[in-house]
């Protein structure tokens, strides 16, 4: 196993299409709830501890080898917004395409066969981490970081926020990222024994409501 594989997988330039999604930040900017670095930080912290924690746990469980079918169903149940389920599967399909080239493996081939229309992105992320020889906590870190780096990058474009300030937000979130990744890895271990009901299901009501509205916009910068 190579720890450096984690850097490849977590790199924002990994060609998996994530840059086209704002993680709900575009809707929050439009609603006037994100106006600068401070409210971006609040937004990211809330997202990290809710849907970010759930994604991290799903990714960690997939990296530990929990059946992708059960995890994908668990992801559906934890993603009530139909618009967000569509976005998560689209992202999963794009990530799988890149990951199969980067880390060819029978596991990723089987995942592509089982989900021709795409599995939820965190499930694919965990399977890719597994194929790259990474562990559950690695996958959790990668997923948790994505849950905040996506909105931070998007807000730089949406509000012309100073990229230095956006990066400082991410740096301040580092202790929270550690906590979330550690907890996600623990719950993934429980899921290995007890099944997917052991995974967290924390939700962010405004992200769900905002996503349904955002999907109906005629003109938008980001896909979700």
């Amino acid at each position: 196993m190579s720890r450096a594989a984690l850097l490849v997988l977590a790199d924002g330039r990994f060609p998996a299409g994530g840059h086209a999604h704002s993680g709900g930040a575009e809707a929050a900017v439009k609603a006037g709830r994100i106006t600068g670095a401070a409210s971006l930080e609040d937004f990211c912290r809330g997202r990290l501890h809710t849907t970010g924690a759930v994604s991290a746990a799903l990714a960690a469980a997939a990296a530990l080898g929990v059946a992708p079918g059960a995890l994908d169903e668990a992801a559906d149940a934890r993603t009530p917004s139909a618009a967000l389920r569509v976005a998560a599967r689209r992202l999963g399909r794009q990530l799988l395409r890149a990951a199969r080239v980067a880390w060819p493996s029978p596991g990723l081939d089987a995942l592509a066969r089982e989900f021709p229309k795409g599995a939820h992105q965190p499930v694919v992320l965990g399977a890719a981490a597994r194929a790259a020889g990474l562990g559950g906590e690695d996958a959790a870190y990668c997923s948790a970081y994505e849950s905040v780096s996506g909105p931070a990058t998007a807000v730089v474009r949406l509000l012309s926020l100073d990229p230095f300030d956006a990066t400082a937000v991410l740096a301040r979130l580092a202790p929270d990222l550690d906590d979330v990744a550690r907890e996600a890895a623990k719950s993934a271990l429980r899921a290995v024994d007890e099944g997917v009901d052991a995974l967290p299901a924390a939700s962010a009501p405004l992200l769900e409501v905002g996503a349904e509205g955002h999907a109906g916009w005629a003109v938008r910068l980001f896909a979700s």
């Binding site: 409210s39 912290r45 809330g46 501890h49 299901a201």
Partner: peptide, 17 residues
Amino acid sequence: ELTCGPGAPAGWDGPAV
């Protein structure tokens, strides 16, 4: 799941939640 109030994970009353 939803957790809110004092002692809930940070960000519960923020713009995402």
